[in-house]
Design a protein around this nucleic acid. Structure first.
Lengths: 112, 112
DNA sequence: TTGACATATTCCTATAAAGGAATATATAGT
DNA sequence: ACTATATATTCCTTTATAGGAATATGTCAA
């Protein structure tokens, strides 16, 4: 079996660095394709292809205006990713806290 | 060009659902390979292969004890992922807030 | 209709991957 | 040394890319 399709979910879609670049670029403002091409120094077909992948997973939305297609990031679609990582982040913070506590106890012990 | 290697970074490594399962399983406790096999109902070679991928990216650490290899998740290695998604999460929360404010203004306007 | 601009799609190639089966390596016990 | 257990690696097949070049589609303007 091959690897899962990039269009299967947000995790796979976001694995590609250029797609992450695109998502960041389109986070605050919608932009037509040619602006993305210029901003990220990529070939136009490459940008279009990445946009289709992102669109299938719901990470971007688009709107037509004349000859231009305006794309924007749908931040909410990244939530599943954020929530999955949050679990580990909390764990990490917790471990940090314990390390800190242990360090403080040791220091206190040295002082007494 | 093909897709980037799963061993290139955490984003690619985590794109595979089974690997995410493994990371969750090993988040709180270290476990030998055969326990992972039993818990996730996977073939042993498959588990070993996924573990090597995760190890190369630093998402898991391992320790040998006799015939057993104990693996555990390194929660800190997931930070880059969490931080990247955080930007969009904040954006989404902000948008939610604005939607809420607008709704309240509308309600107020209707009342007056 | 013709031409120019904007975007999408197709075809091609090289690379990567996941699962399954079989096998290799490592360690403990006798 | 031999056996059993635990884990890692190799080989094979099928599938999915990502990029580049060329081309198709869509839309406006004269």
């Amino acid at each position: 079996m091959a690897r899962a399709a990039t269009t299967s979910d947000a995790f796979n879609a976001v694995a590609e660095p250029r797609r992450r670049d695109i998502l960041v670029l389109l986070a605050l403002t919608e932009r037509p394709v040619n602006e993305i091409v210029a901003a990220l120094h990529m070939e136009q077909p490459a940008v279009s292809k990445h946009l289709q992948v992102l669109r299938k997973v719901g990470l971007v939305r688009c709107r037509r205006d004349g000859r231009h297609m305006y794309y924007r990031t749908d931040a909410e679609a990244i939530r599943p990713l954020h929530e999955w990582t949050e679990y580990f982040e909390k764990l990490w913070q917790h471990q940090l806290l314990r390390v800190k506590e242990r360090a403080e106890q040791t220091t206190a012990g040295e002082k007494s």
